[in-house]
């Protein structure tokens, strides 16, 4: 009797082990996995396509994710990393932790042709100065106008050393002004209300009314139009171009779930994933979509000119450029 009993137990256990789901551990930034972010829905959608489960690990922002990888090294639990942007990818590849994704690069629908073998894009948006239409009748129409404009109308900026929008704006200035960037920063300085550690604090100060302008994304007004039903906050279109942020995902070389990770990266380029992005992450989808974007997205500015440094350029020069910024601002 006992023998039969233990046999049944053993087979049940064996069966459940055999059916144990593979788990894909994905490191990403915090706002991706909150209840309002894309994480939950994407997990649902992906788990339908396989007998697997996703475990999200939310870590601060993109910079924090990269740092965590650097700290963990080869011991990292991550199978996939989602949430770096192109200004960080060269550094990420430099850690030696990533492997080529093996996904068809033509699937990417980014403003510029996608050429990276290690990372695939999942969304993008241009950086833009967002202004409060109730406080500012005439927004600047170019970076030049921003730099040389009325110091009484201020902008909240983010710190390039600790946030990707901050770094993005630094690169933007560099792309437009090249070697003259330092003096332009000095000209801009009286117009800067303050420099916050991250995007949240800057946007918080902006919506509180501390300054009529903030450095954010072209897609920010869409949130306010869709969720708050207001057109109060709009993006300023610059004739001299906007810097682009493309967010990417890549898989870890040492991961035991590489096949699953690759599957996910493929899934990432499909409408099942991409349709979720616009109204949860408030960025533009970088892959094929089935549903049309909400109306509000149609009202967003589309920059005529895109500025973007290659990841290698950023990697090589970042420290020097940040130091240059630091020197210009510290006087």
């Amino acid at each position: 009797m006992l023998k039969i009993f233990s046999a049944i137990i053993a087979s049940v256990i064996f069966a459940s082990l055999a059916q144990a789901k593979e788990t894909l551990t994905i490191y990403t930034y915090e706002s991706f996995v909150t209840e309002w972010g894309p994480g939950g829905k994407i997990k649902e959608a992906f788990e339908k396509t396989c007998d697997c489960s996703i475990e999200w690990v939310g870590l601060g922002d993109g910079v924090a994710v990269l740092n965590r990888l650097k700290l963990e090294g080869a011991n990292t639990k991550a199978d996939l990393v989602l949430g770096l942007d192109t200004s960080l990818t060269a550094e990420a590849i430099g850690t030696g932790l990533f492997d080529k994704h093996g996904v068809d690069k033509a699937l990417a629908r980014t403003p510029e042709t996608w050429t990276d073998d290690y990372f695939m894009p999942y969304d993008y948006a241009h950086f833009s100065v967002i202004y409060d239409t109730e406080k500012m009748a005439v927004p600047p129409k170019s970076l030049d106008e921003l730099v040389n404009g009325d110091p009484a109308q201020k902008i909240v900026l983010e710190d390039p050393r600790s946030s990707t929008p901050g770094l993005g704006f630094l690169l933007w200035m560099k792309a437009v002004y090249g070697d003259r960037a330092a003096e332009q920063w000095k000209k801009l300085q009286p117009r800067i209300l303050t420099i916050t550690p991250g995007w949240s604090e800057a946007y918080g100060l902006f919506t509180k009314g501390e300054a009529p302008m903030v450095l954010s994304y072209t897609t920010s007004p869409a949130y306010h139009m869709v969720a708050e039903n207001t057109s109060r906050y709009q993006a300023a279109s610059f004739s001299d171009g906007h810097y682009l942020q493309i967010e990417v995902a890549g898989l870890i070389e040492a991961s035991p779930e590489k096949v699953l990770a690759q599957k996910f990266l493929g899934f990432m380029m499909t409408p099942a994933f991409q349709d979720i992005i616009p109204t949860t992450n408030w960025m533009l989808p970088a892959g094929a979509t089935d549903t049309a974007l909400p109306d509000a997205f149609g009202k967003l500015i589309v920059p005529a000119k895109t500025l973007l440094f290659s990841p290698d350029e950023v990697f090589k020069n970042r420290r020097a450029w940040v130091d240059e910024w630091l020197n210009a601002m510290s006087k």
């Binding site: 915090e30 706002s31 909150t34 309002w36 972010g37 922002d61 995007w199 949240s200 604090e201 946007y203 918080g204 919506t207 509180k208 920010s220 949130y223 306010h224 969720a227 408030w282």
Partner: peptide, 13 residues
Amino acid sequence: IFRQMGNYRMNDA
């Protein structure tokens, strides 16, 4: 609070 701020939800925060 920070999560809410990070998702544009300033009022919730």
